[in-house]
């Protein structure tokens, strides 16, 4: 069963049964950004180390760089976001995913939060 992790930078990483990790930004992040109008995604095959700039997301009034929460190699980018960036607003943890990757160090997941811990983290920001 897929397991989902969260970073304090408001990204989520969902590890699927086949070991692939799907990455996106959280509902809190998309609410902070407002209407997303542009997403720049990493190329397939790109190697990302934890903390590397992986993507850029722009809304009507702000831009934020998205950093890799874990290390790995990009296997697929969500091309639907090129023409329909507002999928990030409509379904941040569904159709608004950013990219998929193979993990190079699964132990990095241990530094991330589970959903309950992330929800508490967000409550602390409000």
């Amino acid at each position: 069963m897929a397991k989902i992790y969260f970073s304090d930078e408001h990204e989520w990483v969902r590890v699927e049964d086949d070991g692939q990790a799907v990455v996106g930004i959280t509902d809190y992040a998309q609410q902070q950004l407002g209407d997303v109008v542009f997403v720049e995604l990493p190329d397939e095959g790109k190697d990302l180390a934890k903390g590397d700039e992986a993507a850029v997301v722009e809304s009507v009034k702000a831009a934020s760089e998205v950093y890799a929460a874990v290390s790995g190699t990009v296997t697929e980018a969500n091309e639907a976001l090129t023409d329909t960036p507002n999928l990030v607003n409509e379904s941040p943890q569904g159709d608004g995913w950013f990219f998929k990757m193979t993990l190079s160090d699964e132990s990095e997941l241990e530094a991330l939060m589970d959903e309950a811990a992330y929800n508490d983290f967000v409550k602390g920001l409000e």
Binding site: E9, G51, K61, A62, A63, S64, E65, Y67
Partner: peptide, 10 residues
């Protein structure tokens, strides 16, 4: 008009 950019360094 105002705009904003977020980055992370370390």
């Amino acid at each position: 008009g105002l705009s904003q950019r977020w980055q992370q360094r370390g």
